[in-house]
Simulated scan of single mutants.
Amino acid sequence: MSKKITIKDIAKAANVSVTTVSFVLNDKGEKMGIRKEVIEKVLTISGEMKFKLNMIASSLRTGKTRSIGLIVEDISNQFFSDLARIIEREAINLNYRVFYCSTGGDDARAIELVNSLLQANVDGFIITPTENMKATIDRLSELQCPVVLVDRYFEEQEVSHVVLDNFEGGETATNYLLEKGFKKIAFISNYSQLIQMRFRKEGYSNAMKKAGLYDEAKILDLEYHIPEEERIEKIAVFLSSSSEIDAVLFGANYLLLAGLQSLSKLKLKIPTDKAVISFDDHDSFRLHSPSITVLSQPIEEMGKKAVRLLMMQMNDGSNYKIEKEKKKGNLIIRESVG
């Protein structure tokens, strides 16, 4: 078996200290004042040497830990907890264990989690990336560490991913409202560069433009990192300041959970005063009175496919062909549109 490349080997090849290499590989180079050219040199050499941090003694013999790192946005959000459950079930069936963790949409935490899981020597990653995580995903590719993205991806990046066809979903949900006779349809979303939100908004906008009813004032973009009370308040202000809105499409289930409280605060009835549809299902949406119409993601298919793509990548190594998969959503008609 070929000798494992260590931090010492990289330090020697780059003619820098072991500490410098350690800081660079843990994304702390800039913070520690290491010059840009030194950081680039260390990353290039570590990439060339196919270095992968390895700190678990039990895995040294085989280099395999039969474990997967699963990094999602928020494990308390039902979409991600359902997805994690399916990924874990599929992995267990293949005799793999899953370490899972949440980023809370925080870039620094996401990078830290990747480093921790690299140190735990996981065999591969399934990741829902944060907004500025592209460089970290690039680094995993350079380290030849198998990685599959789920729910979102970066357009210029050659990395396998499994996502919802968000544009089609936004269009489908909006067209359903238009067919039901609604004309003043609002869209509530996150203000972010995250690709899934952007495509949902573009799908909505496209349907509204085709109908000759597009109005930018009917789009509300919220910051992701705001307290729930503030989210409820901002949605309430938006809905009350534009009394002519007759229907609302919510870009994610947690946005609708806040929206339901905003509507209640304004004493507005669904669907009499406002019709609503949300992306991503939630148990409470079925139980809510009236029950909520949703554009649901095929979570079962997405979870299975993500694990299958990761296993193929781990088995095929450098022969692996990148796959980019878009799954079609399912409009589940309930009572909230009337």
Rank of each mutant, 00 (worst) to 15 (best):
E171G: 09
N115H: 10
I299V: 14
T174M: 08
L94P: 00
K4A: 13
K3V: 05
S205W: 01
S22K: 05
S81C: 12
I322Y: 13
K184L: 04
I235V: 06
F182G: 01
S17L: 13
G212L: 08
F285M: 05
N190F: 08
K64E: 13
M311S: 03
N95H: 14
S102I: 04
R66P: 00
I332H: 07
I127M: 06
S205C: 02
S296Y: 00
N132S: 10
Y204A: 11
I299S: 02
S243P: 14
F238N: 09
D74P: 06
F99A: 09
D273E: 07
L140M: 14
M302Q: 03
L94T: 01
V150G: 00
E323H: 15
S58E: 09
A217K: 07
L164F: 01
L213V: 00
K28T: 12
I75P: 04
D215V: 00
E335D: 12
E142Q: 10
S189E: 11
E229A: 15
K183I: 03
I226M: 08
I75Y: 11
I7F: 04
Y191T: 12
L117S: 07
S264H: 08
E90N: 01
Q157A: 13
T172W: 06
G69R: 02
E168Q: 14
S241D: 15
G33I: 02
N26G: 12
V294I: 05
T6M: 11
N330Q: 13
K8G: 11
T20F: 11
R66G: 04
Q261F: 03
T65S: 12
L25W: 05
L310D: 06
M1R: 10
I7P: 01
A135P: 00
I92Q: 09
I68S: 07
I34P: 09
R200Y: 11
F187P: 06
L43G: 00
Y96S: 06
K267V: 03
A173K: 04
K64Q: 08
E229N: 15
I292F: 07
N115S: 15
I10F: 08
A252T: 03
S102C: 05
V16P: 14
E230S: 15
K8L: 15
S242Y: 11
V162N: 03
G338S: 09
V24S: 10
I292G: 07
K12E: 15
E300C: 00
I34S: 13
N206M: 07
L94E: 12
P227F: 06
L83S: 00
V162D: 07
F79A: 01
L255A: 13
M314D: 08
K304W: 00
I219F: 02
E88N: 08
N253A: 13
K12H: 14
N319Q: 14
D9E: 14
N166L: 04
N54Y: 08
I10L: 11
S102A: 10
I292H: 10
K180H: 15
S189N: 15
F238H: 10
M302N: 02
E244H: 11
G317R: 06
L310K: 03
L331R: 11
V294H: 12
S291K: 02
K328G: 06
T103W: 03
C145N: 12
M32Y: 15
D151N: 02
E323I: 11
F80N: 01
S17E: 12
F199H: 12
N319I: 09
D107F: 07
L249A: 03
V162F: 04
G317D: 09
E233Q: 15
S81K: 08
K324T: 10
